[in-house]
């Protein structure tokens, strides 16, 4: 899915926990996430802290979208 969208010339960032799969499906911008059942959340945290965490991750994703890359790149 990642590749096909990017083929249209639109930058796409893949936020995924298992980054090896991310790479094998052809993502170029990858943000590693927290856990499979809650990629951009963490139920162990207080709700406010969880939001901060999510904000941080989405910022990373946006940062990835505004960064030129030449091949699969992790944004950690």
């Amino acid at each position: 899915m990642v590749k096909e969208i990017e083929r249209f010339g639109i930058p796409i960032v893949h936020m995924a926990t298992i980054t090896t799969i991310s790479e094998s499906v052809g993502a170029n911008r990858i943000v590693p996430t927290v856990a499979i059942p809650h990629p951009v959340g963490n139920p162990k945290l207080a709700q406010e802290d969880e939001k901060v965490l999510r904000k941080e991750l989405v910022k990373r994703a946006l940062n990835a979208l505004t960064t030129e890359v030449s091949g699969p790149t992790h944004f950690e």
């Binding site: 899915m1 990642v2 590749k3 096909e4 969208i5 990017e6 083929r7 249209f8 010339g9 639109i10 930058p11 796409i12 960032v13 893949h14 936020m15 995924a16 926990t17 799969i21 991310s22 996430t33 499979i36 059942p37 990629p39 951009v40 989405v58 994703a61 946006l62 979208l65």
Partner: peptide
């Protein structure tokens, strides 16, 4: 799926995509 969604996003002039996976 990617092709269909991508075509729509392109037509709508979307500038960037965040795709999350579990």
């Amino acid at each position: 799926f990617g092709t269909q969604i991508g075509a729509e996003l392109k037509a709508a002039e979307v500038d960037g995509v965040i795709l999350t996976s579990t």
